[in-house]
Design a protein around this nucleic acid. Structure first.
Length: 417
RNA sequence: GCGGAAUUGGUGAAGUGGUUAACACGGUAGAUUGUGGCUCUAUUAUGCGUGGGUUCGACUCCCACAUUUCGCCCCA
């Protein structure tokens, strides 16, 4: 037997239903927020992702699916959505002659070559928004609250927005310098990973799981103390806006991201129960320029759909989600089956959800199937009645059975489901 | 990539170095000769992740691999 590749999963049963529900809600939501859908390739030139995350974050350690295609091109399966959208913005010159704010959203699979764990897959589905050409904290508030409201709309209640500001480039340069100076005497006390991070990506030391409760970590410099006046003002403005928009947030000065391109506000939607991040985002004002586009501010977030499915499922009753059909057609012999199939088509074309027996099931079994499908009306075909142009219809709730002229079956069912 | 744990029918699972792998749900058939959902009866894994090895004999012990899962790394 051939098994699925490591870290992938089949979206089936109730999970598939929840997935479709999530997608429906997202598409509807984005309509009201007036964000445009974009789809970018699942694979891109490797340098797009490697450049976007920055030289300092050592691309070799990024867990991407890289390969060379038959033409010798270096290809990477997209590990996230932002870089592709930014590339598309630049390549299609979507920014041309525009003073307004550009708002996009995407939804699709991403690929990361990492060790699978619960809710962590090598093929994952992400939804995200990217907003360009506005540097106003008003947009930060809109984007953060958009994700917040969407999660609430999906029935996810117990989560909080964790918010931090990384300030501008100068802020980070100063902070990293201060951080390294502070940590220098304690280097030997840090865990092995942190000693590597110290050189490679010092901000990530704040994420350390080993030493987080140590005295050294308690007294670590706080990035919020290093914010420029401008960055401070922006954060204050954003905070008051979020309060007005009734977003539950808390400031978390230890929140950093593993990618270089973020500046100013970064945030995560954190589940209160599991402590896992449902989604994360940030402002990335320099990325468009880094990728050879105009100097254009941008902000966005991504939410992992796979993990949402699990969160939503937890809130459901512990029972299988019922199938629902309007009409189930029961038939036994060949004549009935053929008649039933044409009747099924007529009903379906009239927007009646219809299912029909297509096996050699006994009538008894067909009743069971119909019940499992929660059929509202049962059509019990009978050759003798068909000869007379009559169709038996049984209401599955009242158990009342009627014989209807075959020409009136569709009208009857439409008004009785 | 590193470390720990797991893997038995469609599902939830019990189990022992030795002939028939418990129980439950679900499925099928019948009692009910084309009208069910209750009840009763029968039936439902020629196989215990895959491949090797030890053994007279392995689902059970050993090794490798795969997948899942927990933690680390990474988190875009």
């Amino acid at each position: 037997m051939i098994a699925k590749p490591k870290g992938t999963y089949d979206l089936i049963d109730i999970d598939a239903k929840i997935y479709q529900y999530i997608v429906d809600v997202i598409n509807e939501y984005m309509t009201y927020y007036n964000y445009e859908f974009v789809r970018t390739p699942i694979f891109e030139d490797s340098s797009l992702f490697h450049r976007s995350v920055g030289e300092a974050s050592d691309i070799v350690t990024k867990e991407t699916y890289d390969f060379t295609d038959r033409g010798g091109r270096n290809i990477t399966l997209r590990p996230e959505g932002t870089a592709g959208v930014v590339r598309s913005l630049i390549e299609n010159k979507l920014y041309g002659n525009r003073n307004d704010t550009l708002k996009y959203y995407y939804l699709g699979t991403m690929y990361r070559y990492e060790r699978p764990q619960a809710g962590r897959y090598r093929e994952l589905t992400q939804f995200g928004v990217e907003v360009f050409n506005s540097n106003d904290p008003l947009i930060d508030a809109e984007v953060i609250s958009l994700g917040y409201n969407l999660l609430k709309e999906l029935g996810i209640e117990n989560f909080t927005v964790h918010l931090n500001s990384l300030g501008d480039e100068e802020t980070r340069t100063n902070y990293i310098k201060a951080l390294k100076e502070y940590l220098k005497p304690y280097l030997n006390d840090l865990c092995e990973d942190c000693r590597t991070r110290y050189e490679k990506n010092p901000l990530r030391i704040l994420d350390c799981k080993v030493d987080k409760d140590s005295q050294v970590f308690q007294n670590m410099p706080n990035i919020l103390d290093y914010l420029s006046d401008d960055a401070k003002l922006r954060l204050e403005k954003l905070k008051s806006l979020l309060t007005m928009l009734e977003v539950d947030y808390e400031i978390d000065s230890k929140l950093v991201r593993g990618i270089d391109y973020y500046d100013y506000h970064v945030w995560e939607y954190i589940s209160d129960d599991s402590g896992l991040a449902l989604g994360a985002g940030g402002r990335y004002n320099s990325l468009v320029k880094t990728l050879d586009g105009p100097d254009m501010p941008a902000i966005g977030f991504g939410i992992g759909i796979d993990r949402l499915i699990g969160e939503i499922k937890k809130n459901l009753e512990d029972r299988p989600m019922p199938h629902n059909v309007d009409v189930y057609i029961m038939c036994v012999n060949e004549e009935e089956k053929i008649y039933g199939e044409t009747l099924a088509q007529s009903l379906r074309l009239n927007r009646v959800i219809t299912e029909i027996n297509s096996n050699n099931l006994s009538l008894k079994s067909q009743f069971k199937v119909a019940d499992n499908l929660n059929a509202k009306q049962l059509i019990i075909l009978n050759s003798e009645d068909l000869q007379k142009g009559l169709v038996n219809i049984k209401d599955n709730a009242t158990k009342e059975e009627v014989k209807i002229d075959e020409n009136e079956v569709i009208d009857y069912l439409i008004s009785n489901i």
